[in-house]
Design a binder for these strands. Structure first.
Lengths: 129, 129
DNA sequence: ATTTTAATTGACGTTGACGTAAAAGTCAAT
DNA sequence: ATTGACTTTTACGTCAACGTCAATTAAAAT
């Protein structure tokens, strides 16, 4: 109980097992192994996969995501480490905020475009009376 | 006046000329040509490039961006065409909205993480008194 | 016990999004 | 008119992010 197999995760997140192994190759996931060598994923690893996939959806590269995930993994005991982490976290949050703003702009542009088309459509319909 | 060369755009948007030609190969841009065959870009083409690059920043593929740009290019005169366009536009706007929501979630997660680290850091500092 | 299903590593293949180099033509400046 | 910067097409190269076998081993189902 409490452990997931590779295909559990593959099914849950709709990715291939190859993909999950690839993320491990790249150092993003670190499952434990059974005696016979099969991978077992804890809830934490599952959470990491979730984060990876979310990151991917915004176009972050695996390398960037790797850096983000480091926040979960590294040993953050010393003060220096904590400070570095906090600083890095602020930076990343800022990046995300910028992306959000950018997306809002895109949305606004698309909405303007759409309302123009809608107007034209109404004109068409008025004409048809 | 009013026309841009390929390197004008390359400089303005910090992309290579190869990239711009590639977008044309993929049907995303359609510059006009001089007598001798050199590409000239109108303001509209420039706007399209801007949109392409914005789209890229959110991880949309060129194929997806192509679909979005079609809103600018196609001949949208008939009622049917207009209706299709409006419907498609709504769909795309919804997709963008979902991405924004997703990013906001990510931001919230990161902020929660960060405040945890900040708390630990304060504890560290208190201890140091 | 044996068939079926799932897991492992290894290696090669593929696709998207360009980079890079070559050969030839064009434009602007001197 | 020649130099040098810029452009064109063609073509091969590259890198990330996987896909797709293949051969082998392990687990689950019957």
């Amino acid at each position: 109980m409490g452990y997931f197999t590779i295909s559990d995760l593959a099914q849950e997140f709709h990715v291939s097992t190859r993909t999950i192994r690839y993320y491990e190759e790249r150092g993003l996931l670190t499952p434990i192994r059974t005696e016979s060598g099969q991978r077992l994923y804890t809830k934490k690893e599952r959470a990491k996969l979730k984060l990876i996939l979310r990151g991917k959806r915004f176009g972050f590269s695996l390398e960037e995501i790797h850096e983000m995930i480091a926040l979960f993994d590294e040993d953050r005991t010393g003060k220096k480490q904590l400070e570095k982490t906090v600083e890095y976290g602020r930076k990343k949050i800022k990046e995300v905020s910028e992306r959000i703003d950018d997306l809002l702009k895109l949305k606004a542009e698309m909405e303007a475009l759409l309302s123009d088309f809608e107007k034209r459509l109404r004109e068409w319909e008025d004409r048809a009376e």
